[in-house]
């Protein structure tokens, strides 16, 4: 395997993959339409939906147990420049997986990388954080404090 032309670290890629999978499909579609020079691509693996078993550890360090099943959609594309993009996203949206894979491929290309990191990934990250904040604000308003009354006996 050749890593010679890779201009990114695994950590960087994990970060952008995470942002791409957690963004909405509409946002990704908008960002994709905004790219002026889109490369041609073909599917190595067309978008396909399946189930994965999510595993967890009690308290983060306990024994591993099966937490539950989750629907995921995955896709792998190859651009004409030879970059291979992979994506696994939650849910059943095929276009979402395809777009996330396309962005993953573009981000591996140093010619696109900075531009997309600044114009797309940063924006997606911000809007996700905003969404998260709104949700936590909404739930904060419904917060209930539980207390135990001491029985006087």
């Amino acid at each position: 395997m050749s890593f010679s032309r890779n201009s990114f670290t695994t950590k960087e890629r994990q970060k952008w993959m995470s942002v791409l999978s957690k963004s909405s499909c509409q946002e990704l579609e908008g960002a994709w339409q905004g790219i002026s020079e889109k490369p041609d691509y073909r599917h190595l693996r067309k978008p396909e939906t399946g189930i994965i078993m999510v595993r967890a550890r009690a308290g983060g360090s306990g024994l591993r147990f099966n937490f539950g099943e989750m629907t995921v959609t995955r896709c792998t594309v190859k651009t004409d420049e030879g970059y291979v993009g992979c994506a696994y996203v939650m849910g059943r949206d095929h276009r979402h997986a395809e777009l996330a894979a396309l962005f993953d491929a573009l981000l591996q290309n140093s010619g696109y990388k900075l531009k997309i990191l600044n114009m797309v990934i940063l924006k997606l990250k911000e809007s996700r954080e905003k969404r998260k904040e709104e949700i936590s604000k909404k739930s904060a308003a419904t917060k209930v404090d539980f207390f135990t009354m001491v029985r006087g006996d």
Binding site: S2, L44, R45, E48, T76, K78, V84, C86
Partner: peptide, 16 residues
């Protein structure tokens, strides 16, 4: 072993 995706070719055009 990891799979080298750079040499990968597609499978069925319509898997189903």
């Amino acid at each position: 072993a990891t799979i080298d995706l750079n040499q990968m070719t597609p499978g069925f055009s319509d898997p189903v």
